[in-house]
Design a protein around this nucleic acid. Structure first.
Lengths: 191, 191
DNA sequence: GCAAAATCTTGAACTAGTTCAAGATAATTT
DNA sequence: AAATTATCTTGAACTAGTTCAAGATTTTGC
């Protein structure tokens, strides 16, 4: 029996579910342990699961034509990740998800969530609300990428997520912020 | 009596609503006519409405510290827009929304949508699903901004949205793609 | 249909950030 | 604790894209 306390707590911040509903939800969860550097999602394979990080750290990234890595998301505890395009279309992924530490994740099959959202109104509301938040912060990131200098982006990110900056390799942060690893090093040396 | 055909059609692509539900939904819609260059959303004022474009074109943008414009979204018919951060937090907006043409928009109050989503399961599912799609395409845009050259971004955008490129001033496209208006002009002259 | 406003183009000087290369540190593994 | 692998730093040469300025073209309002 796993500890669903933290994910149910996350849900409770947005909606109230009955005990039966909570049980139905936790019954679709598969718990997976992954080792550092292990891939959870890989290009070519459909992203079957919506993943929740119970413990550890995971990043989602893709490789461009020149083989350069671009990190799309960095998540630690209490964070969802997926190749969302692949997840909602159920077409092959284009992104990797890689454990940055030994981690424990909860995996929920796309179809199971869809069925449960159709059945449980509160759950539909929950995913609607967290996706709205995710969308708004994605918009904020676009704004930051377009409108700010690399230095500003790094300083603000480090201020907002000091724990991530301390846990995760610098080249990952760089590729998340859209800066070369070398230039991020130079930014840091000037601070 | 307005023509809700197109917005109900949009909904029908994702979920089925009963006649009563449709009526409840259309009853919260306020129709507004806006003139070219008119602002619908302005920094300092809470973004009260989720807006749907029935006819016309609208962009959402913000001004950075140096007074430079950065376009966050460009929408034409059958497209939702808002300052989503302001909408979901109900705090003052930081963005402008400006009509690029004389337009007709449907406006739905944030609180009315929330209430109706809590009441009508299908509507909650609808907004969940369209927000998931919006989120996925927002992620794609981040990837494009970080990983591609200006030229690639422009060429791909023009290919995907030829109608927008033809309807909307070039400097708006440039500020959406994160390029200076001058450089976009040079890109186009080389094509 | 003319005047004014808005948009687009082009060139020259510049700069933020990249790329490449090589060495220095730090973290893991045996 | 030595060896290997992963990560970070620094410098020099380079380039994609910016900024500024001024003129050309198109659109809009009266």
């Amino acid at each position: 029996m796993e500890d669903y306390h933290s994910i149910l707590n996350n849900i409770a911040r947005y909606v109230e579910l009955s005990e039966t509903e909570k049980e139905k939800f936790t019954s679709i969860i598969k718990t997976t342990r992954i080792k550092k550097r292990q891939f959870v999602i890989q290009p070519g394979y459909v992203c079957e699961y919506r993943n929740y990080i119970l413990k550890g750290a995971v990043r989602v990234f893709y490789l461009d034509d020149q083989g350069k890595e671009h990190t799309v998301s960095i998540g630690i505890e209490d964070y969802y990740f997926a190749d969302f395009t692949s997840l909602i279309t159920q077409e092959p992924a284009t992104h990797f998800a890689e454990a940055l530490e030994d981690s424990i994740i909860f995996q929920m099959k796309y179809e199971d969530i869809e069925k449960l959202c159709a059945e449980i109104h509160g759950l539909s509301e929950y995913f609607r609300k967290i996706t709205e938040r995710a969308f708004a912060s994605s918009r904020k990131r676009i704004v930051a990428n377009i409108g700010k200098t690399s230095t500003q982006r790094y300083v603000e990110y480090a201020q907002k997520y000091p724990n991530i900056v301390n846990r995760v390799p610098q080249y990952v942060i760089a590729s998340y912020l859209g800066i070369s690893a070398e230039f991020l090093s130079k930014i840091r040396s000037r601070q």
